[in-house]
Write a protein that binds this DNA or RNA. Sequence first.
DNA 1: CCTATCTCAGAATAACTGAAATGC
DNA 2: CGCATTTCAGTTTTTCTGAGATAG
Lengths: 147, 147
Amino acid sequence: MDDRIGYVLKQAQQALRTAMDDALRRHGLTTPQYAALDAVGASGAISGAELARRSFVTPQTMNGIIANLLAAGLVERHVNPADTRVLRVSLTPTGQRRLEACQHEIDAIQERMVSGLGPDEQRWLIETLRRCAETLTVSFGEGPGSM
Amino acid sequence: MDDRIGYVLKQAQQALRTAMDDALRRHGLTTPQYAALDAVGASGAISGAELARRSFVTPQTMNGIIANLLAAGLVERHVNPADTRVLRVSLTPTGQRRLEACQHEIDAIQERMVSGLGPDEQRWLIETLRRCAETLTVSFGEGPGSM
DNA sequence: CCTATCTCAGAATAACTGAAATGC
DNA sequence: CGCATTTCAGTTTTTCTGAGATAG
């Protein structure tokens, strides 16, 4: 019963989430906030809707996350001249520094999580998880903020 | 950036969660409700606190889930004569039928998720995920519903 | 004009923290 | 008294509706 893929998947994700929450709390960030900040840092100027898709949340939820990041002065929004519908989010200098300060710790946590595996096993695990997700996604819909 | 264990873990769990939500909606259940119902079915009479630990949620959240299952007539609560503090949750006949009706579909979804893997690979994946979670849990705290 | 996408606003649901009451 | 279970209160987060604005 506890040897189902669904159970261990939930178990692993919960363990990672808890470790990330503990580490990020010292930086005044939540895990969803960090995920959004990391996506902005990797993509430059990006819309809230696109950010929502990459973070597996709804656009409304991402809007709330962005509002908190705005209030903390970590990101800023500007109208895209090429498409006045979208408000592109980008990092402030403060946000850039905060992101870099967190990335080292988060990367270390993820590396510790797979530290019991060899390099080949780590690559196999990641590739296998991606394939499992894709197998399920082709026959069904995707996450709330993805399409 | 999208080849990190954290990303693919979230991706896989999101895909499974969406597929389960879609399947369970036709039975009038949510995924957390099914998880609780399944744990009750596997354990017989069980306390809300223990149920919370097995479902990776807080006791308060499990209390709300149980309240919904009670209102739907799928479970019932009785005082444990040996310890009058605990309210043990057990399945009603209706809950037993509803659980069995869902289990076939949920099992099929989980099997489809790993259908691209051989039997040995499936066992290795599950065992590896369990070890990854344990590696992270020994140095940090566990889920929200554990202490 | 019509369709799709992005964003915002209000209400409802769900989840967590903190703390209190109860019984072992 | 220490510990575990349950429950209450307050807050935050997330989602669900529905709407308005703009691009193609």
